[in-house]
Design a protein around this nucleic acid. Structure first.
Length: 512
RNA sequence: GGUCCGUUCGUCUAGGGGUUAGGACGCAUCCCUUUCACGGAUGAAACACGGGUUCGAUUCCCGUACGGACUACCA
């Protein structure tokens, strides 16, 4: 029998959650649900210097918005908590000490200045990669070079120290990545990474391994930026005696800039005018801000669908998936290997697809709210009709009100280009006749009857309706393009149509 | 620089030793329509390069080029 799948998303609260992080969370979530397992969110806040207030709340709100719900998290603790590493602080030291005892780690007393001097010396000696490793450690101040009694003296006196892993000299570390296959790294290229910092906090490397083990994580699904340090993690599992229960690894391809090269950053969003964060972000410290997908009008279902397809596909030609369908179709095997450029046009397309499937009543709320901001109170009926009329014509919900204004506000000015081209005697004749017909009509006024009346007006004047339609549109909406005119008439009502036409008739000068 | 990872239309990708290399976004044209949009149809558009292996490579192997990640007491 196989154990329950447990995966985690482990962001650090150092700023707004990046959209790439959201995708990582999504893949973890989809995999967990596909496998009938658990999805855990753990906050990796071991770096006190980089902690940003509000960042954790931002992470939570982002995941909530997209409905990527965790089974266990700081906000909904399970049995393997706490779910913030800062709250797990007392637990880490014992594992570091265990490694020291076993000879796989050691104390180091080097000051930042010592380290800097070492790097300078190495650089001067033209060593290409100045680092604290199995060669240079012999020249540094650590428990490998210092006499035992001095180490104890320094420790006892409270001198700051770190604990570093002791990377073996000549070994090959092999790990099987679910996405990339076997990756082999020689230990001579690894450095003696710090495991415990002088402030008593573990680094990512130690905390990550300890927590994943303690939380029973079975699969580590994370960004490709972690691949280079994965061999170190394998070594740590081994040295801690946990190799048999070591999780499987899956390193996700990165999200890249849409143009040029490099990984997607906040700058790209600013430059190309699209968000790279799920939600609007306001830094409480320095007041800086960044736009979010939510506020731009992206629908959570659409963004989720779009994100899922950035580096993954179901193998068939379907593209529109609900979350449940994504879960059903998801597999790690179908994740691609190469980096994925971020194409905002595709995201917009997804949004349009989801937007036009939404209920008019739901969309009506957007219109009502936006109209209110402009000082207009509109009924639910009108707003729903407006939504129905316009939802296939826009990308974002907030564009709906703009598109619907012609239903609420009578035109005061008229598109000049259309006027100079279409406002001729024929149009005026037909419109005059139409007004006349409208006044004499007392039946039901809907798009069909509105059209019939218009048709007969044209017939009487012996003018082809098609030739004056643009002018009719101009008279009633002031515009040269827009939604189906007869539906607009039907929504406007007979009197309003009549009034608008009369206004146009007296405002506009004929061209011939 | 070093280590590791990658490379199919502009972009996201399917495919896989013999295919007219498929789909989607975007783009163009046409159709629908009173207009714009939606929708439909059509089109332009790709296997990075060089060697091998093979009867045959876009597919397998090796190089090269290019791209990316990492190279902190950051995650």
């Amino acid at each position: 029998m196989t154990q329950e799948v447990r995966v985690r998303f482990a962001p650090s609260p150092t700023g707004p959650l990046h959209i790439g992080g959201v995708r990582t969370a999504l893949y973890n979530y989809l995999f967990a649900h596909k496998m009938g397992g658990k999805f855990i969110v753990r906050i990796e806040d071991t770096d006190q210097a980089r902690f940003v207030p509000g960042a954790e709340e931002y992470i939570k709100e982002s995941l909530d918005w997209l409905d990527i719900q965790a089974d266990e998290s700081p906000w909904q603790p399970g049995e393997t908590g706490p779910y913030r590493q800062s709250e797990r602080k007392p637990d880490y030291m014992q594992y570091a000490l265990d490694l020291v005892k076993k000879g796989h780690a050691y104390y180091a007393f080097d000051t930042p200045e010592d380290l800097e001097a070492m790097r300078e010396r190495l650089t001067a000696a033209r060593v290409v990669q100045p680092q604290y490793n199995n060669i240079t450690r012999t020249q540094m101040k650590n428990s490998l070079t210092l006499p035992e009694d001095e180490v104890e003296r320094r420790l006892a006196s409270g001198e700051p120290y770190v604990i570093r892993v002791k990377i073996p000299r000549q070994e090959e570390v092999r790990l099987k990545d679910l996405i990339r296959g076997w990756v082999v790294v020689h230990t001579s290229t690894l450095d003696d990474k710090v495991l415990m910092k002088s402030d008593g906090m573990p680094t990512y490397h130690l905390a990550n391994i300890v927590d994943d083990h303690l939380m029973g994580i079975t699969h580590v699904i994370r960004g490709e930026e972690w691949l280079p340090s994965a061999p170190l993690h394998v070594l740590l599992y081994r040295y801690l005696g946990w190799e048999n229960s070591m999780p499987e690894f899956a390193h996700l391809p990165l999200l890249l800039k849409p143009d040029g090269n490099g990984k997607l950053s906040k700058r790209d969003g600013d430059k190309l005018g699209f968000p790279v964060f799920p939600l609007d972000w306001k830094n409480q410290k320095d007041g800086s801000s960044a736009p979010g997908f939510r506020e731009q009008g992206y629908l959570p279902e659409a963004l989720l669908n779009f994100l899922a397809f950035l580096g993954w596909n179901p193998g068939d030609e379907r593209e529109l998936f609900t979350k449940e369908e994504l879960i059903e179709a998801f597999s790690l095997e179908r994740i691609g290997k190469s980096g994925t450029k971020f194409d905002i046009e595709k995201a917009k397309w997804y949004n349009e697809q989801y937007l036009k499937k939404m209920d008019n009543e739901v969309l009506a709320k957007y219109i009502i709210d936006d109209a209110k901001k402009d000082g207009f109170d509109i009924s639910v009926e009108l707003a729903s009709a407006a939504a129905s009329l316009n939802k296939e014509r826009v990308t974002f919900p907030q564009e709906l009100w703009e598109a619907s204004k012609l239903l609420v506000i009578a035109p005061k000015t008229f598109d000049e280009k259309v006027a100079t081209k279409r406002w001729n005697q024929d149009a005026i004749k037909v419109l005059n006749k139409y007004v006349e017909k409208l006044s004499g009509y007392h039946g039901v006024f809907n798009s069909e009857t509105a059209k019939e009346l218009l048709n007969s007006s044209a017939e009487i004047e012996e003018i082809k309706l098609g030739k004056v339609m643009q002018a009719v549109r101009l008279a009633v909406t002031g515009l040269g393009a827009g939604p189906d005119l007869m539906q607009v008439f039907s929504i406007l009502g007979k009197e309003e149509v009549k009034n608008r036409i009369n206004f146009a008739l007296q405002e506009l000068k004929p061209i011939d």
